[in-house]
């Protein structure tokens, strides 16, 4: 704007801006640090106390476990009295299979919408996008009937199908945005070389790998953490996911503090390890998912 006035700005006292900068930096650290502490404190309390004997959990909740207070009794209870391993395996299967098909079916549909100008393209795109905003949960009453007619209640397949349907809208929306940015020349060159349309899809897929990674992470977490559909569609002991299994275990063992704290820690560990490894990608994927 007014470049003329620029020269007058640095003429002020040099000390006070420096001091102001220092205090504002300290304040920023204080607020960010304080909030970060608030974010980890409850989680830390659970993990620390899961490794102590009961009387130390209550006697010295803030102390780290030491040779005197250390105990794994809670973990023993969890492994002997719950289906932890089975629940964990169920979650792993459901999440991995669902995410795989969300990416496969989603990228195929996104490719069709991004690449071909067929009649009704925009309507199909709009139809497939409705599920981004309207939660699939609202159709639960009919979904449960439908599942029961198909014999899919209390099966992992039932859960997988619901999660694929739930994850597809956002996956298609984001992937088609990315696929539209791929230069036309590339595809036309392949066509001249005699590549089929299926070959072209296979050619494009590696080019949108970052978007696929983002969608993988973005759709995986809500599936892993979901309580509603395991509770409604697959509540049996054989099909319970880790989220439901932990919920039921905690309900039964509510007064066994060692067991509760250990079960919570065990349930958090896989997702926290994943988070430590991929936190930057996860954060970026949330941004991509919401702002694209």
């Amino acid at each position: 704007m007014s470049l003329v006035r620029a020269s007058s700005a640095p003429q002020r006292n040099l000390l006070s801006p420096a001091l102001a900068l220092l205090t504002s930096r300290a304040l920023a650290h204080l607020i960010l640090g304080g909030y970060a502490l608030l974010a980890v404190f409850p989680v830390l309390m659970i993990v620390i106390n899961s490794l102590k004997e009961r009387r130390y959990i209550f006697g010295e909740p803030f102390a780290l476990p030491n040779p005197m207070s250390f105990s794994l009794i809670g973990y023993e209870t969890v492994f002997s009295r719950s289906n932890f391993i089975q629940n964990f395996a169920n979650s792993l299967i459901v999440t991995a299979v669902a995410v795989f098909f969300i990416i496969l079916f989603g990228s195929m549909a996104a490719h069709a919408l991004a690449e071909y100008d067929f009649p009704g393209n925009r309507w199909v795109a709009l139809y497939l996008a409705i599920g981004i905003m309207i939660p699939i949960r609202l159709g639960t009453v009919s979904l449960l009937r439908f599942m029961s007619n198909l014999g899919l209640v209390n099966t992992l397949l039932g859960l997988i199908l619901v999660y694929i349907a739930q994850g597809l809208p956002l996956a298609i929306f984001i992937l088609s945005q990315f696929m539209r940015q791929i230069p036309k020349d590339l595809k036309d060159a392949a066509r001249i070389d005699g590549a089929s349309e299926y070959r072209i899809y296979a050619l494009i897929l590696p080019l949108v790998r970052p978007a696929i990674g983002a969608i993988g992470i973005f759709t995986m977490i809500p599936i892993w953490n979901d309580l509603w559909f395991p509770l409604v569609i697959a509540p049996s002991a054989q099909t319970a996911t880790i989220t439901l299994g932990v919920q039921q275990f905690l309900g039964q063992f509510v007064s066994d503090w060692n067991a509760v704290l250990s079960a919570l820690t065990l349930a958090m560990v896989p997702i926290l390890v994943l988070y430590v490894l991929f936190s930057q990608q996860m954060i970026r994927s949330v941004t991509a998912g919401a702002l694209k």
């Binding site: 490719h111 199909v124 597809l168 809208p169």
Partner: peptide, 20 residues
């Protein structure tokens, strides 16, 4: 390309929602 996604989405998302 469109059939698998549209089919799963229609059967397990839009149909139950409308039927509900």
């Amino acid at each position: 390309f469109l059939a698998p996604a549209t089919l799963v989405y229609t059967l397990f998302m839009t149909y139950p929602l409308l039927d509900s």
